[in-house]
């Protein structure tokens, strides 16, 4: 499109506008940064990535189980091992996610227009809980049989028991391997993009007079800043 070429010309196509808006919200160097603010220096910051890694193993082990069906692990030693990795990656996923949540709470990470990041994080936690619950129903063992009997009451009491029938293996299988993973995936991707777009929240009570910011102000004042080429503001 010629409209895209040359500075100053307006982009009119929907695609072009979408691209420009996306790039403005999340330029590549923000999406995949090579530096982080100096205050990003604590072990508490690794648990978000830990959750993502654990989710990766949840998905991979789940795919192997899906290829063989829910009853496979009862009859195959390898299947049982894969089932165990699925269980433990889920346990690790939740452990890391909860530590991540605690950390973000004590940092009040919703500050500075990051409320939606916090909200999508909580949503990811909630949807993951529902997904894990459907997984427990697919064990096709004594535990899942009992959960199917007991959990129906809460679901029936709120009127969703017919569409979320915990004793219907086929229905719950679809929730667990189609609908809910799509939801978890979408929410997690959105959450991560929001984190990257907004950057990591600065410390509480940080001020322009902090030495971490003062040097830069001096440089600003001295006029050593790069020219505003490509400035989007």
């Amino acid at each position: 499109m010629s409209a895209e070429q040359g500075s100053g010309s307006r982009i009119v196509s929907w695609t072009g506008r979408f691209r420009e808006r996306s790039l403005k919200a999340l330029p590549p160097e923000k999406l995949l940064p090579e530096t982080q603010p100096s205050y990003v220096a604590s072990w508490i910051y690794v648990f978000g990535m830990g959750s993502i890694a654990a989710l990766g193993y949840v998905i991979v082990s789940g795919c192997v189980l899906a290829l063989n069906g829910p009853a496979w692990y009862h009859v195959s030693a390898f299947g049982h091992f894969i089932n165990s990795t699925h269980l433990w990656s889920v346990e690790l996923f939740f452990m890391f996610m909860v530590i991540h949540l605690w950390g973000k709470f004590w940092m009040a990470s919703w500050r500075g227009g990051r409320a939606l990041t916090w909200i999508t994080g909580v949503l990811a936690f909630v949807v993951s809980i529902v997904t894990a619950f459907t997984g427990y129903l697919l064990q096709t063992n004594f535990d899942s049989e009992w959960i199917a009997f007991q959990a129906k009451d809460a679901l029936n009491a709120v009127g969703v028991g017919a569409w979320f029938n915990v004793a219907n293996l086929g229905q719950i299988l679809m929730w667990h391997i189609v609908l809910l993973p799509l939801a978890v995936g979408a929410v997690v991707v959105l959450h991560v993009l929001l984190v990257r777009a907004h950057g990591v929240v600065p410390p509480l009570e940080a001020a322009e007079t902090d030495s971490q910011l003062r040097n830069l102000q001096l440089r600003d004042a001295a006029g050593t800043l790069e020219t505003g080429e490509g400035d989007l503001s």
């Binding site: 530096t35 990003v40 950057g199 902090d210 971490q212 040097n215 830069l216």
Partner: peptide, 8 residues
């Protein structure tokens, strides 16, 4: 963030 950064 306009302050100091670290490699990451």
């Amino acid at each position: 963030w306009r302050g100091t950064v670290r490699e990451y």
